[in-house]
């Protein structure tokens, strides 16, 4: 039988899916580099956050909880830093952002 915590974890894991799909969809559909960066830094990090939260509920020890948190924070920092670096590089290279015609 599923416990309440399992049910909650399962719901969180399922909830992460639409965000990962949105990240890929944004990557494919959005008109320029800058908009695609938005999709990557936000949708995917939220998806990972939900997975991490789900697994935290299942963790056997506090150490495991902290390590999961560390992974999420690392991915967050890396994603945000890289997004900024790529955007800055693109701007410096003279790439004008797409505008609604």
């Amino acid at each position: 039988m599923m416990s309440l915590i399992d049910l909650f974890s399962g719901a969180l894991i399922l909830a992460s899916l639409p965000f990962f799909v949105a990240g890929t969809l944004g990557l494919l559909r959005f008109p320029d580099l800058y908009c695609r960066l938005h999709a990557l830094t936000k949708a995917d990090n939220l998806g990972l956050g939900l997975v991490v939260l789900a697994l935290m509920l299942q963790a056997q020890s506090w150490l495991q909880v902290l390590r999961l948190l560390l992974i999420w924070l690392l991915v967050l920092i890396a994603g945000a830093t890289v997004a900024h670096l790529i955007a800055r590089k693109a701007l410096a290279a003279g790439h004008r952002p797409w505008r609604r015609p």
Binding site: F20, G23, L27, R36, L48, L55, V82, A83
Partner: peptide, 29 residues
Amino acid sequence: IRVLRGPTPTDRMLAAQLFGTTAVAILLL
């Protein structure tokens, strides 16, 4: 598909970033 289409090297790198996040989730699961 984005990696294949590009059109710029930076677009290809974006896909690699996406994999980074998603692969971490896959490994954890």
